[in-house]
């Protein structure tokens, strides 16, 4: 079977809901099938990437740590909507892992070339 391109879009902040975890789990499961997997953080989703997270005081698993494993599991491209970062007064240096910053044109191209786009 030929390889398909999956793009996961995550738009919600960590800890407030289990959506970020659901999205991550689905992406990791897809990577197991050796498909092309892209991960795009938009809007409040960029907060998931902030460095120095510690879920311990709220009895939660630290999501930032889980994201550090993305490349180990074969996620091809971790992307961030640059405008979403800017709006929140953040820059790439504030994030826990290296990411590819995308403008609107690049995001459109990514979505266009994907076989599946999954918003969780």
């Amino acid at each position: 079977m030929s390889k398909k391109a999956f793009t996961f879009i995550s738009r919600t902040a960590p800890y407030g809901s289990n959506r970020p975890k659901m999205s991550l789990d689905a992406a990791l499961a897809t990577a197991v099938f050796e498909q092309e997997v892209n991960y795009l953080f938009m809007d409040d989703g960029v907060y998931q990437l902030l460095a120095n997270q510690n879920g311990e005081p709220i009895q939660a698993k630290t999501l930032g740590n889980a994201l550090e494993t993305l490349d180990l599991y074969g996620i091809d491209e971790v992307c961030v909507d640059y405008e979403s970062l800017q709006k929140r007064n953040l820059e790439a240096g504030d994030l826990t892992i290296p990411v590819t910053l995308l403008d609107a044109t690049q995001m459109r191209a990514l979505i266009n070339q994907s076989d599946f786009v999954i918003n969780l």
Partner: peptide
């Protein structure tokens, strides 16, 4: 069953439709 069943379904089908 596990999430692999979702990925398998995406790969086996013509369309994947999500509802939130």
């Amino acid at each position: 069953a596990g999430l692999g069943q979702l990925v398998d379904a995406a790969l086996q089908s013509d369309r994947l439709i999500n509802f939130g």
